[in-house]
Amino acid sequence: MDFILRAPKRLLFHFGRYLLLMRNAFNRPEKWSMYWKEILRQMDDIGIGSIVIVVLISVFMGAVAAIQFIYQLDGQLIPKYYIGYIVRDLAIIESAPTITCLVLAGKVGSNMAAEIGGMRQKEHIDAMEIMGVNTAGYLIMPKVVAALVVIPMLVVFSAFVAILGGYIASVGSGELTGGEYLRGTRSFFLPNNVNMMFVKSLVFAFLLTTVSCYKGYFVKGGSVELGEASTQAVVYSNILILLADYIIAVILTG
C-alpha cells in the first residue's frame, strides 16, 4: 500500500513546496531598483542569448513544414497557395510557441536550474538569506518577469522566421511562386490564432522558468545532483509544456 501511495505523496509534496516557493518569490521586493537591474540582465540573457537558436530552429521548422505539405498535397485538387496558409497557421498556433518553448526549456531552463543550484551549493543563497534578502524573490521573480516579457517576443519572431523559412523552401524548390505563397499567408486569417499563440507563450514561459528555478533552488548534494536537477528541470518543463499545450488547445478551440 505504501508503495502505491509513494508517488502521489511525492507529487503532492513537490506541488505544495512549489506553490510555497512561488508565494515567496512574488512577495514585495526589498528594493525595486535591484530587482529591476536583475530583470534587465535576465531579459538580455533569455532574449538576446536565444535569438540565434530561435532563428535556426524556426527557419527549418517552416521549411520542413512547407516541403512536407508540398509532398502530401501533390496531385490533389487543393490549390498550391494553401501551402502558405498551412505554414502560417502551423507556425502561429503550434510550432512557434510550443517548439520554441521546448527548445528554450532546454537552453534557458537548464541554465537557470544550474545557476540557482550552483548558488545553493556554494552557500551564496545562505549568504543572501543571512543578509536578510528574500532569496526566492530576488533569484526567481526577475527571471519569471523577464521570461514573460521576452519569450512572447521570441515566439512572435519565431513565427515570422518560420513563415519566411516556408517561403524560402517552397519558392526555392520551384513548386510555388512567391506570389502564390504570399497569397496563402494572407488567406483565411483568424486573429484568435494570434491570441492563442500569446496565451501559449505566456503559460509556457511561466512553466519553464518556475519549474527550472524550483529544481535549482532545492538542489542538494554535489555536482552529480546539480546535473540531475538541471536535466529534471528540462524534462519536467517539457512534459508540463506539452500538457499545457493540450489543455490550452482544448479550451481555446472548443
Binding site: N24, E123, H124, A127, E129, I130, M131, G132, N134
Partner: peptide, 21 residues
C-alpha cells in the same frame, strides 16, 4: 519570515568557503 529578515539586517556571517559571488 519577515521579522526574521528584519533581525538579519543586524547579522553578519563569514562562511567557511567565503560564499563570495
Amino acid at each position: 519570515k519577515k521579522e526574521v529578515r528584519q533581525i538579519r539586517m543586524d547579522v553578519g556571517m563569514l562562511f567557511q568557503g567565503s560564499a563570495l559571488f
